[in-house]
Simulated assay, not measured.
Amino acid sequence: MIRRLTEDDRELLMVLLRKEPALNLFIIGDVENFGFEQDFMALWGEIDPSDGLIKAVLLRFYRSYLPYADGPFDVEGFATIMRKDNDIHMISGVTEVVKAFDGVINFKQGKQLYFAELKELNPKIIAPYSSANNINIATVQDVEAICSLTDTIEEFESSRDGSRTSLRKTLASGTGRTYYMKREDQVIATASTSAENSMSAMIVGVATHQAFREQGLATSVVAQLCTDLLHEGKSLCLFYDNPHAGVIYKRLGFQDIGSWSIMYM
């Protein structure tokens, strides 16, 4: 049976999501930050009649849908909900779950990313947090200096227009944090988190100024960011599609735990 979830279902939902907190960081974060009663967000759960537990969940966040299940689930039931939405833009999630909708929902295009998780930092990576290496924790006042760096990074071109607004909102709301390194008042390396919640966080926005690359600066910033989050008891994850970037993250201790698919309508 599939039904709309409410605040009364919070703990039952978390029982399911805690099984894989890294893979579920978006749903966990949205529930913790926004609850169940929002116009831009809705959650449906498939209830197992044998024990009353939630076995699968479907999140709508604005025009995007994210399904999750840790086993077989009612694909057609979730698809019926999505088909009723004439404004749907995207479906994303663990590849095995998203692929279950092949032939059930028509996708126009999509992409697949590697999904990696960090539970313990490689002890050989040292990133002491001190004024000596000039790693700082960003505030809203640092947004312009940080975006002046990311504006120059080709990989960030698609998100450039809203980067300042997005970063300000993230820092102000506490749903993410940014660390950065400066030389002569210029930000030369940075790394951020997004979708932070009580259990997990995602590493995003890793960048180094072109003139300062191949010095391990971004690695140092990411290592310090990861160290602080791990000390808070959070698991860390990230997406990547560049094998070279994957090597760098694996050196830190990240391990591939699956793949993530994004399908556009």
Rank of each mutant, 00 (worst) to 15 (best):
G77C: 12
L236N: 09
D51N: 10
Q215K: 08
V187K: 02
V94P: 04
S194L: 07
Q255A: 15
I28G: 01
E184W: 00
A22I: 00
A145T: 09
D8N: 07
L113N: 09
Q255H: 13
N242A: 06
G258C: 02
D85A: 03
L230F: 05
S131G: 13
D30K: 12
S235V: 05
G216D: 06
R213T: 15
V98G: 10
K182S: 04
N197L: 03
H244D: 15
E157S: 15
I126A: 15
S200Q: 01
I135F: 10
V222D: 01
S163R: 09
K99N: 15
A127Q: 03
V94R: 11
A69G: 08
M181T: 15
I105C: 12
L53M: 03
P49C: 11
F239E: 02
A100I: 12
D241A: 08
S92E: 04
I2T: 14
Y180M: 02
R251G: 15
E232V: 08
R213G: 11
I146M: 04
T208A: 12
A195M: 15
G110S: 05
E37C: 08
D241P: 03
D74G: 02
E117A: 13
F239Y: 05
D161S: 03
Q38Y: 04
S235W: 04
E154F: 13
R160T: 05
C226V: 06
W44P: 09
S148A: 07
G233K: 04
D85W: 01
F107R: 08
L167C: 02
D256C: 11
T139E: 11
L225Y: 03
R213Q: 14
F239L: 10
